[in-house]
Design a protein around this nucleic acid. Structure first.
Lengths: 140, 140
DNA sequence: GTAATTGCAAACGTTTTGCATAGCA
DNA sequence: TGCTATGCAAAACGTTTGCAATTAC
């Protein structure tokens, strides 16, 4: 399992150690992921990548996303409305999505997690993973 | 906003009152939704509907789902993996999905909701709606 | 050298839509 | 009657895949 990643070099070295070839295209994509603060979808990643290397294709973006997800380096999210969005697999957090702007705010609550586990246990289950999204609007 | 629905007649009357035409096809679909306990996808609804009236088409299922969602009579869920699944918009609850069987268990926790609201408030937001899914495995 | 990766285009599965016909109110 | 809903087929959408050519190691 790839650990939390701070920069492109970390990414590359850890992937290399996991037996993954670091191609020119993957370098570009890894750089984008390590520099990005938001939750881009495949098409947005392609656009940013194209600015650096116009020959990169959408297939490669998807294939790389799948690879990185399998290696645990990124997470795939399916927020409401269409496309999958990706982010670095930094320590677990949940998301608040601004329904007016589409902005995504990350948050984390131990209390919430404890409660989720309690609920699952009461139903006779152990949590494998969870998804929790708050669709919200700015208070005025 | 259509209230919680117990049976097909309730559905029909409330929709009629909202200016919606109750066609033969919609009657069948409403009946299926009112009788069902699970979270069928569009194709499953089509199959159940076809058993009653084979002339119903998938387009009509989708169009009806969209209509009912707009009227607040049903909810659309996008659990992990492919198709949207639908259920009656009975009082809000969350879902625990059995990762081995695909079974969906509904649950509700006031405590959880209070916590969500608190989290949103701290971030300066008011919740419009939320999504919370626990992907879990039976304890042995 | 050779096995993995790429770009392209075509296929995929789900959902939506244009259009001419049918049917509710 | 008039306008909405329908079925069908085709399009749209995001994503995946087969293939021959390229590239990392």
């Amino acid at each position: 399992m790839i650990e939390t990643i701070q920069n492109r070099r970390d990414y590359e070295n850890q992937l290399r150690a996991a037996g993954v070839r670091i191609t020119r295209q993957r370098q570009v994509i890894l750089r984008i992921l390590s520099e990005t603060e938001d939750h881009p979808d495949a098409f947005e990643i392609l656009q940013r990548a194209s600015a650096i290397d116009p020959s990169i294709s959408l297939s490669t973006v998807y294939r790389t996303m799948k690879l990185l997800e399998e290696k645990g380096a990124i997470q795939r999210h399916a927020f409401e409305g269409g496309r999958a969005r990706f982010e670095q697999a930094a320590g677990h957090h949940d998301h608040l999505i601004d329904v007016d702007t589409g902005d995504v705010i990350e948050f984390h609550s131990r209390k919430l997690e404890a409660l989720q586990e309690e609920i699952a246990r009461q139903l006779g289950y152990e949590i494998v993973h969870h998804r929790m999204e708050l669709y919200a609007r700015k208070c005025r």
